[in-house]
Amino acid sequence: MTPLLKVQGIEKRYGARIGCRDVSFDLYPGEVMGIVGESGSGKSTLLNCLAGILTPDTGEVLFEMRDGAVKDTVTMSEPERRMLSRTDWAFVHQHARDGLRMNVSAGGNVGERLMAVGARHYGHIRDEAIDWLGRVEINESRVDDRPTAFSGGMQQRLQIARNLVTGPRLVFMDEPTGGLDVSVQARLLDLLRGLVREMGLSAIIVTHDLAVVRLLADRLMVMKDGHVVESGLTDQVLDDPQHAYTQLLVSSVLQV
């Protein structure tokens, strides 16, 4: 098996300040990797570099395309990268309003990616949108409502449906459960887990919530001050942390 994503020596600076430095890893098909760390640790910078939102100063992000060719998404042309982000990639934002069109109906939000890749049959687009709303547990009757009329959890689920409708192979998630009630988080996590398994998705999830990565991520990368200080199997890193910072992080979690 070859990696879906091969990240080598990513570095991003903001002037003299380091965003992230010397990050390398391989992500295999079907793998879910969590990136944890406190605010300012560089985890979001890294995610944005991987997803083509920021351009890293050095390093390669090699992605295996559907045809098996491996391309560096840092140096590929912008049209190609934007096409990837509409088809093979998905990005789930922490704030649903960053990832949704708030003045477009739920159906239109889900259908947009289909129309972007050429779907031109209203009936089919709508059926597909309704099917996806069902998969993220949004009732069909809400298909023509705008996301502004949805609760936070529903907005987040709609964002996921909108992202997954084109059957992406790699999903980037930035604090997908941040800002949601705990009960809503659980439902969302369960949903994500199911979708990841059903669709064989690979995912990179940035979060500061260790419970989220324990449930969703196969592997974990711990970041501090722009560096990866520790990485490995999720439960191993959480239960037998080796680095001082990880030990602090794990021991700081309040027990319920």
């Binding site: 934007r82 109906s105 159906g107 239109g108 947009e112 972007a116 709508r126 023509d144």
Partner: peptide, 18 residues
């Protein structure tokens, strides 16, 4: 410039939906 016109159909989709 990139000929990304899916959004135009979103507008028409919204019309029909409404």
């Amino acid at each position: 410039s990139l000929e990304e016109y899916g959004l135009m159909h979103v507008k028409l989709y919204e019309d029909i939906a409404r």
